[in-house]
Nucleic acid binder design. Structure first.
Lengths: 340, 340
DNA sequence: TATTAACACGAAACCGTTTTCGTTTGATAT
DNA sequence: ATATCAAACGAAAACGGTTTCGTGTTAATA
């Protein structure tokens, strides 16, 4: 019943040849005679021989694994990124090890240390919020100094020299805000998180830029910063009511969908009285009522590109010290939460 | 700049002792003198020595990796399961390699083969729909015959002997249907997928059982089977309208939220005119309008339990041929899509 | 017939650890 | 002085491959 996997040594013993002969025969080496090759290959096929990955990894110091460290997996955006990474990596024969930092600096560090000792050929990661708050990137420094390639996506830092993939968050917010203004909206709010997240910061800049450029001006009291992801019903509701808004830009889809519901409860019609635009083109936006216009971040594309950059670097012999930052353009996905 | 990681051999050479002495010294072996141990440990700390995982894996034939093969990752349920697995596994020092079958039999097979050659200590998986349709489980058989532990969750088969974790889907559907009936609903529809998915089948059974038990009887024309996940707007709408329903049970939250919207468009009020209950307690249910009552599947718990069962088996010396199936009880999460 | 080259294969090193089993040294007991 | 023993360490095998560098045999060439 329990048939353990067979090794080169086993084949060699059975066929009374040396291990090296078996190894070469299986690789169809010219060195080995037709006869022997056929014999070995037939035997290997019969007993379903498959080389041991670990042994190969040890030998050529390549694991064909890539480590992905992200803050959370129960977020549509990250999920799509993983899918993009997995698809691309798999196509090139790589496996994906997923580690969750859960927005914790310590877990991020521990995860990286666990993987950095030979388990993976490179990292793809998005920084935890705590890491971005602390501004401590020594764990990344150590890894890159060891010569392990790293690709940072979305939540990045420019304190580390490595390949990066981001979407132009500023542009996304700018596009969204401009769209609202062009539709005649003037009292446009922004609901965001605290500034420590690089993406939130960039989106705030884009929002302000559009307002300024279009001659409306920034009203700081129209910017609501939510410290956590816990929805503060009373706070948001009073914000929506006291500000007399006609449009709201939210930095994610949860904020947007939740705010929409509160607005509806207050008797506002969407989009007639008030428009909403969010970030992240997830299931929530698609199936919300009304469906939510969003700035799409193209997570899957992002994952794919990250994986490509990483694997290219891993497989390139020369260790060029040249890094690039790919900036993806966001797209506005128009749905029923704005007039159109 | 580029400081490659240091090995036992390096330490041995620098300190002019043997590799074995270094190895033992680092493990605080009694065999080694105080002096030597201190010297070695200090040196190792200074140069940040970390043992190479691959070498260790090769030696003790344990990778401390577990392979997770699931149909899709962009589904809230699977995402939460992964999180549960990752959290538990990480706490016990294991890493998680995620592979997506994308509902394809071939990909499932390929993924398992990739991992089964030493990369992982065991599998946690949920079958692809194609696999369940074909009923071909040879890839699972091969793996278990090799002595690699497998834990199946959610989409399982009883053709394979291994540990399993499921929620009682039949009970979940039964509970939901009964709840609707108790609230006076009589024309209760079921929107489901084709029967090949083990979960859909079980849910249909529970739905029918409740109807029968409560003396309402099953009306097959009130069961809508959607062949794909592509939403068929016209089909669903006409189904809702022609059947004169007062309640709908859906096998997932997308079906439910989508149907709710169509019902609303038809002028129906939820839950006054028609109630909805779905499966999967995801973001969609929570933020839908009205929020959706669902049968919660406790994905994270499921992942956690799967990981526990797997790791326990992996680490147990004796290969007991005894397998268990854990059945989790679903919970009804009451929200605004039904009266309450 | 002697030399050489091609052919087919094996021995052994290596990847980085762990671990078993010596071996050396000095001290103690006889 | 010799046998005994413990302490402290090293050599080597093992995990499962890959790969370099022989080496013996045969066939072709001078």
């Amino acid at each position: 019943m329990l048939k353990a996997k067979i090794t080169l040594k086993d084949i060699a013993r059975e066929l009374e040849v040396s291990i090296s002969t078996v190894s070469k025969a299986l690789k169809n080496s010219e060195e080995i005679s037709r006869d022997t090759k056929e014999k070995v290959q037939a035997f290997a096929r019969l007993y379903n021989y498959k080389p041991n990955n670990i042994a190969i990894s040890l030998k050529n110091k390549r694991t064909k694994n890539i480590g992905v460290v992200i803050p959370d997996i129960v977020h549509h955006f990250f999920t799509t990124v993983i899918r993009g990474i997995e698809k691309y990596a798999n196509a090139r024969g790589y496996n994906v090890i997923v580690c969750l930092s859960e927005e914790s600096f310590d877990k991020e560090v521990i995860n990286m240390e666990m993987l950095a000792n030979g388990s993976i050929d490179g990292f793809i990661m998005s920084l935890s919020s705590e890491t971005q708050q602390k501004g401590d990137y020594n764990h990344l420094k150590e890894v890159t100094e060891q010569g392990i390639p790293v690709v940072l996506f979305d939540r990045i830092t420019n304190e580390i020299e490595c390949d990066k993939v981001v979407i132009d968050d500023e542009l996304g917010a700018y596009m969204a805000t401009k769209k609202l203004i062009e539709q005649g909206r003037k009292k446009i709010a922004l609901i965001t998180t605290d500034d420590y997240l690089s993406v939130s910061k960039a989106r705030t800049v884009g929002y302000k830029k559009a307002l300024t450029e279009m001659g409306i001006g920034v009203d700081e009291s129209k910017i609501l910063k939510l410290p956590t992801m816990e929805m503060d019903e009373a706070g948001i509701k009073s914000f929506l009511e006291t500000q007399k808004l006609d449009a709201v830009l939210c930095v994610n889809e949860i904020f947007a969908v939740y705010s929409m519901r509160l607005a509806q409860k207050s008797g506002l019609r969407i989009p007639e009285d008030i428009s909403f635009i969010g970030f992240t083109d997830g299931v929530l936006s698609k199936y919300a009522n009304p469906s939510l216009t969003v700035v799409a971040q193209h997570g899957e594309k992002m994952g794919e590109m990250s994986a490509q950059m990483l694997i290219d670097k891993v497989e390139s012999e020369e260790d060029e010290e040249t890094y690039q930052t790919k900036i993806l353009e966001p797209t506005l996905v128009i749905r029923d939460s704005i007039v159109h």
